[in-house]
């Protein structure tokens, strides 16, 4: 099947290829939206790719006070990793260094999954013997004394093995400003999809990569086929009209969440149109042999 054309844009007849991951989620609350987001942003910093960060993490949704356990503004944060042990380690390090430390914060389970990860039940040792265990209803909390009162933290949170990482698409435009506008529109739309995150800076990756490289030890390296400056030099995927490509990488709680996020993002890019945004949409894959999950762009159109 040849490439399609929608709203004056080319949609490549290709697919995104994604992998099974382990994921967890927590709900962070604080006295104000500003400080709930601050704790969430701090703990999801340096969490763009498992290649170098150990995990991929971002804010999934902002929660209104009516949707949080303590009636304060909050954020749901999702964390993805390749294995349970690494996910556990990343969760404790990040919550311990970034949420426990953030003024007025509290931390709750954000997922009910097939297994549990330690949260407060490990962080409680910060209390040095003054921590208090409380079972309220069927939930277990730890109260850890800190300098502005108490850090309240649920004992455990859930782990899901159904998570999917690496859903993606490329927005390709005549200028970098247009590529950025299209990518921003996609990120804003994906932000409304529950259970899906875009872990790169602002949700956007400009250095999409291929596996391996000519130098020993490189796990990933430049995707020269999509680099506009190399268009005449290498076997390029880019036509003469493309001067900037940005990638949106999506991790989701489930296969469906990734698909919903891709649909929402692609819809936003198409609605923005080729004049202000992208002229072409493509996706990254490894020939379909490595990943368990395949998302054909033609199935992701609005």
């Amino acid at each position: 099947m040849p490439n399609m054309s929608v709203n004056g844009m080319t949609i490549d007849d290709t697919f995104a290829e994604a992998f099974g991951m382990r994921a967890t989620a927590i709900v962070i609350t604080a006295p104000s939206r500003k400080w709930a987001r601050q704790a969430a942003i701090t703990m999801t910093g340096f969490a763009t790719s498992v290649i170098g960060c150990g995990c991929e993490a971002a804010i999934d949704l902002d929660l209104p006070p009516s949707a949080t356990p303590d009636g304060r503004p909050g954020c749901r944060v999702m964390i993805f990793a390749m294995g349970t042990d690494e996910l556990q380690k990343q969760l404790l390090n990040r919550v311990g260094q970034c949420v426990l430390t953030s003024p007025g914060s509290a931390c709750f389970a954000g997922l009910q999954g097939s297994a549990e990860l330690k949260l407060g039940s490990a962080l409680r040792y910060f209390g040095d013997g003054w921590q208090i265990s409380k079972k309220i209803g069927d939930r277990h909390f730890w109260r850890i004394p800190v300098m502005d009162g108490e850090f309240l933290c649920e004992a455990t949170t859930g782990l899901t093995k159904e998570a999917v990482g690496g859903g993606n698409f490329f927005v390709m435009a005549q200028s970098s400003a247009n590529a950025l506008a299209a990518a921003e529109a996609a990120v804003a739309a994906i932000g409304m999809v529950p259970g899906a995150i875009v872990p790169f800076p602002g949700g956007i990756a400009r250095s999409g990569s291929k596996i391996g490289g000519k130098y020993k030890g490189m796990i990933a390296s430049a995707n020269e086929a999509y680099a506009p400056t190399l268009r005449g030099v290498v076997a390029s995927e880019l036509g003469p009209d493309i001067n900037a490509v940005l990638e949106i990488v999506i991790d989701g709680e489930t296969n469906d969440a990734v698909a919903a996020a891709m649909k929402a993002g692609i819809k936003a890019v198409i609605e923005l149109g080729p004049k202000r945004g992208a002229v072409r949409i493509s996706a990254g894959n490894y020939g379909g042999k490595l990943g368990k999950f395949i998302y054909s762009l033609k199935n992701m159109l609005p």
Binding site: T29, P31, P69, D70, G71, R72, G104, A106, K134, I136, G137, F141, R143, D148, G149, E150, L152
Partner: peptide, 17 residues
């Protein structure tokens, strides 16, 4: 009398229950 999230949680639980 510092701010207490525990107080909020138990208050909400007692009402919800």
């Amino acid at each position: 009398a510092p701010e207490s999230v525990f107080a909020a949680i138990i208050d909400r639980h007692l009402i919800a229950d």
